[in-house]
């Protein structure tokens, strides 16, 4: 589904992505872990199209999308959520998701009809909100939602664009244990229906959910394999998991 070949990105003297080659199969949940500063968000930004790599290629569905800008990749079915919550605070939860539906539906030069009363937008938007468990909060402005709810809203917006693949950048960032558990449940529900690339700090969540794990350290892939293989990989333990109890 998504593939990178020899991806390379540097910021001045810092090599943020060091010849990364990944291959993510359709339907799998592929997690990327690594310590802070390993280049996880930089990698996602290149996959989503926000950053241009200095070398290498990104292939989506076998098609070279390296030069394709963000909005075209999104339209092609590559949806992302942001590590820093990035919703539209004055809009209601429903309006936020309806906007995502609209992006996917592709008819935005409609000047007359009230978008908030357009069932073709609000119908799918409500479904996405129900799926992530925000249904009862649909009419609350996003700025009044809790942190955890806004993370859920992020996911709902990504889902509403009708994606074929989700790039989730630390969906559990800043969540409490209860909220985190809810998010794990949600991801488990989505798993199998979507191809998912998950960047996450929460090791318990990653090992519980992932089909495949890639470990990134200093911009380079040091190991890739099933959760069991990663758990027992001596290099991973030394480089990264050392202090964690896995």
């Amino acid at each position: 589904m998504l593939e990178t070949r020899d991806l390379y990105k540097r910021f001045g003297g810092l090599v943020a992505t060091n010849h990364v080659s990944l291959s993510i199969e359709a339907g799998e949940l592929h997690a990327i872990i690594g310590p802070n500063g390993a280049g996880k968000t930089t990698l996602i930004a290149q996959l989503a199209g926000e950053l241009r790599p200095d070398g290498g290629a990104v292939l989506f569905d076998g098609r070279d999308v390296t030069a394709l800008p963000v909005q075209h990749r999104a339209a092609a079915g590559l949806a992302r959520s942001f590590q820093i919550t990035s919703v539209f605070p004055p809009f209601t939860a429903l309006a936020n998701v309806a906007l995502a539906v609209q992006a996917h539906a592709g008819h935005s030069f409609r000047f007359w009809r009230d978008a908030a009363r357009d069932g073709r937008l609000t119908g799918p938007a409500r479904q996405a909100l129900d799926l992530v468990g925000l249904g009862p909060r649909a009419d609350v402005p996003a700025e009044l939602l809790s942190h955890g709810e806004r993370r859920q809203l992020e996911i709902a917006m990504a889902l509403a664009t009708g994606p074929r693949m989700l790039l989730l950048d630390e969906p559990m960032a800043g969540m409490g244990p209860a909220e985190g558990a809810g998010m794990v449940e949600l991801l488990r529900k989505l798993k199998g229906h979507y191809t998912i690339l998950l960047v996450e700090h929460d090791m318990d969540a990653v090992f519980a959910l992932a089909d495949w794990i890639t470990v990134l350290v200093n911009g380079a892939v040091i190991a890739t394999g099933t959760p069991d293989e990663i758990r027992s990989d001596p290099e991973v333990r030394r480089a990264y998991l050392g202090e964690e109890t896995v």
Binding site: A48, E50, P69, V70, Q71, H72, A74, A75, A79, R80, F82, S86, V87, F88, P89, P90, F91, A95, A98, L99, A100, Q102, A103, H104, H107, S108, F109, R110, F111, W112, R113, D114, A115, A116, D118, L121, M157, T161
Partner: peptide, 23 residues
């Protein structure tokens, strides 16, 4: 309040997010 207006208003609030949505 139309679909068109929502795109313009969304772009004021967060244009980067609008592009990530595919606009």
């Amino acid at each position: 309040r139309s679909r068109f207006g929502m795109v313009v208003r969304g772009a004021r609030i967060n244009e980067r997010r609008m592009r990530a949505l595919g606009f």
